[in-house]
Design a protein around this nucleic acid. Structure first.
Lengths: 335, 335
DNA sequence: CTGAAAGCGCTAACAG
DNA sequence: CTGTTAGCGCTTTCAG
C-alpha cells in the first residue's frame, strides 16, 4: 500500500501539498496539481481513510441498532438510512440486537470508543449500560420507529401511531365490526401503547369498548401472531375482526384462522401494520397501515448528521404520515 | 473525551504502562494495574478504538455486499456473519447494492481505503471497478451464497445448488409430474445455472425433458414470480408443477395461480428455494429447499478472517448441505 | 502557493 | 516490570 509520502516523493512536492491537491484542489497551482495527480495514478495511491478519520477524530460511521434485521420493515428503514448515510459520506455499521440487552450495550458501546460518531436506535430501549450513562450522554443518538420510554433527551422520528390505529379502528367499525380483537406487540414499547390507546379511543368515540379479553400480547413475529389468533378465535366471544400490530403477526393470524377452518374476511377480518411487501401477497391481501419506512430511515440519518455536526441534541418529534391501505383481508361484518 | 495520557498522568505512570495494563494485564505489577484501573475509572476513560485501529493498520471491520437486504434469506446470512464477526472482534459494514454496479464499486472501494479489512460478497459479480483491479487483487474477499462467474480467485461458501435442484426435481417427478415449469433467477448468475442444470439433469435421468418454453426468467422478487407464473400457466401446455428458484418468486407464483382460479396443489404444485420464514405461512405452506443461511454467513466470515490473518487467498469451495422441506404446496399430479 | 513540523491516541520496540 | 521514543498516514497550523 503506497502512502502519501510516496506520492510526495514521486511528484517532488511535500506531503502537505499532496494532501491539499487531493482535498482542496484549488489550493494548489494547476501545474502542481497535475503532477500530483499523475504521481497518484502511477503509485496506485488511495488515501488511507482510516488515517484521515483518525486525524480528524471522527469515524464517519454510524451505528444502527436494529431489533430484528429479518423483519422486512426494518430492512426498508435501513435502506433509507444507508442511502442518506452514503450521500453524507458516512458508512453504516450494523448491529442486530435481537432485542437483547447485552447485544445493545455491546453495539452502543462502539460509539463510546470512537468507532461510530453516532447511533440510530430502531428499538425502544436505552441502549447503553447504566454505568456508561455519563459518557453516553454526549453521544449523538436519534430514535426512529420506536421511542425510548421515559426518556426525552433524544430526537425521535416516528409515525403517527395513534392516528394510524384510529384510522384502522374507524375502518373496521365502518365495516360493521363491533367485537374487535387486538394482537399487540410487547407492552413495554411506547409505540405499542400509542397504537393501543389510539385504537381504544376511536372505539370509544363510537360508543364501543375494547374488551380487555380481546387484547392479547404478541411479539411482532408470525408464530406469536398465530398464537394470539388461536387464543382470540377459540374464545367464546370470538372477535369478528383482529387488528395485529404488525404485518408478520397478521400473517400468522391469517394462517391460524384458516387452520381453524375460518374464512377471511368472511368469518373474520384481519388487519396488519407496516405494509411490508409480503402483505400484498397474502391470501387474501392484507389490509394494513403503510409506514414510509425509507423516509423514516432517511430522516433519522439526516437528523443524526445534524447533531454530529454540532446541533444540540434535544428532545424533538418528527411525525411522518401514514397511509391506510385497504385490501381484501377486511370486509363488512355479516351477522 | 479523556485519553491515555490523562490516565497516565492520574495514575503516575507512563502511557505505555497504561496501554499494557489494559491490553496485557499480566505484564504489569498488580499494584500498578490497580492504580491504572482506578485512574481509568475516575477519568471515565475508554480507549479510542479508532486510534488503536489506525495504529495497527487495520480497521477490524468487514464490508458485506448484499444484493437486497429486504430479502429475508440474506438477512439470515447477515445474522450469521455478524455473529461470527462479533466473536472475532470485527464489526460489520453494510453495503446494500441493490444489484447495482455503481453501488458495488462504491462499497467495495472502501476496502481499498482501509475502511474495511475484507469483503464478503453475497452477490455474483466482481465488485471492484476494472481500474481498481490491480489494487483489489490483494484485498481479502470471500464469496458466499453466490459465486462470481469465471473468477476462481476467491473462496466460495455455497450450497449444493445442483444437488438441491435435483432433489426437488426428484420430489416432483416422484409425485407424478411430467410437465414441470421453472421460474429462474437472473441467468447470468452461476448458481441459477447450477440449479437449472441440476434440475434438468434429474429430469433427463427419468427420461423427461425440460421444455424450454416452460423455463421463464425471474428476478428473485415476488412480482417477477407472479409474472412468470402468469406466463407459464396461461400457455397451452401449462405445467402441472412449477419450481421457483427462490421463495419470494414462489409466493408470487402462488398468488398469481390463485388469481387465475387455480388451486394449489390440486391444479398446480409450486416449490420454492431458501426456506425463508414466510414460506411456512403461505397458503398452502411452501415446499422448499432449506439453506443453512446463518451457517453460510458464519462460515464466510470465518474464512474471510483466516485470509485477513494471512492465509493465502485462493480458490476453494465449501459446500453446505441443503434440506428438502416438503410442505403442502406440492402434491401428486392427478390426471 | 508551498514546505516544515506538530500532533491526532495508541502501540511496540528498545532500554533500563 | 516500567519508561522513553519512534512511528502509523494524514491534516493543519505557521512560516515563508
Amino acid at each position: 500500500m503506497s502512502n502519501i509520502r510516496e506520492v510526495a516523493r514521486r511528484s517532488g512536492v511535500s506531503v502537505a501539498t499532496v494532501s491539499r491537491a487531493l482535498k482542496d484542489p484549488q489550493m494548489v497551482s494547476p501545474r502542481t496539481r497535475e503532477r500530483v495527480l499523475k504521481a497518484v495514478e502511477e503509485a496506485g495511491y488511495r488515501p488511507n481513510q482510516l488515517a484521515r478519520n483518525f486525524s480528524s477524530g471522527k469515524s464517519f460511521a454510524v451505528m444502527v441498532l436494529v431489533p430484528n434485521i429479518a423483519n422486512p420493515f426494518f430492512s426498508k428503514v435501513i435502506r433509507g438510512i444507508e442511502k442518506a448515510a452514503q450521500d453524507q459520506g458516512y458508512s453504516v455499521l450494523l448491529g442486530d440486537t435481537k432485542g437483547d440487552t447485552a447485544h445493545e450495550q455491546f453495539y452502543a458501546g462502539m460509539a463510546l470508543t470512537n468507532q461510530a460518531d453516532g447511533l440510530i436506535q430502531l428499538g425502544g430501549c436505552y441502549p447503553f449500560a447504566e454505568k456508561d450513562a455519563a459518557l453516553a450522554a454526549s453521544v449523538p443518538m436519534v430514535n426512529a420507529c420506536e421511542r425510548i420510554a421515559e426518556d426525552d433527551r433524544y430526537p425521535v422520528v416516528e409515525l403517527d401511531n395513534s392516528g394510524a390505529a384510529q384510522a384502522l379502528a374507524r375502518h373496521l367499525i365502518g365495516l360493521g365490526h363491533r367485537r374487535i380483537g387486538v394482537i399487540t406487540g410487547p407492552m413495554k414499547s411506547p409505540i405499542v401503547r400509542d397504537r393501543l390507546a389510539g385504537f381504544e379511543e376511536e372505539m370509544q368515540r363510537h360508543g364501543l369498548t375494547l374488551n380487555t379479553e380481546l387484547v392479547v400480547n404478541g411479539e411482532f413475529t408470525m408464530p406469536s401472531g398465530a398464537e394470539g389468533a388461536q387464543k382470540l378465535l377459540s374464545s367464546i366471544s370470538a372477535p369478528t375482526a383482529i387488528f395485529c400490530m404488525n404485518d408478520e403477526m397478521a400473517i400468522g393470524a391469517i394462517h391460524q384462522a384458516k387452520k381453524m377452518g375460518l374464512q377471511i374476511p368472511t368469518d373474520v377480518s384481519v388487519a396488519g401494520f407496516d405494509n411490508i411487501e409480503f402483505s400484498q401477497f397474502t391470501d387474501p391481501p392484507l389490509t394494513t397501515v403503510d409506514q414510509p419506512a425509507e423516509a423514516l430511515g432517511r430522516y433519522a440519518m439526516e437528523t443524526l448528521r445534524q447533531i454530529i455536526d454540532g446541533k444540540p441534541m434535544k428532545s424533538s418529534r418528527t411525525i411522518l404520515p401514514f397511509d391506510l391501505v385497504v385490501r381484501g383481508s377486511t370486509d363488512r361484518y355479516q351477522d
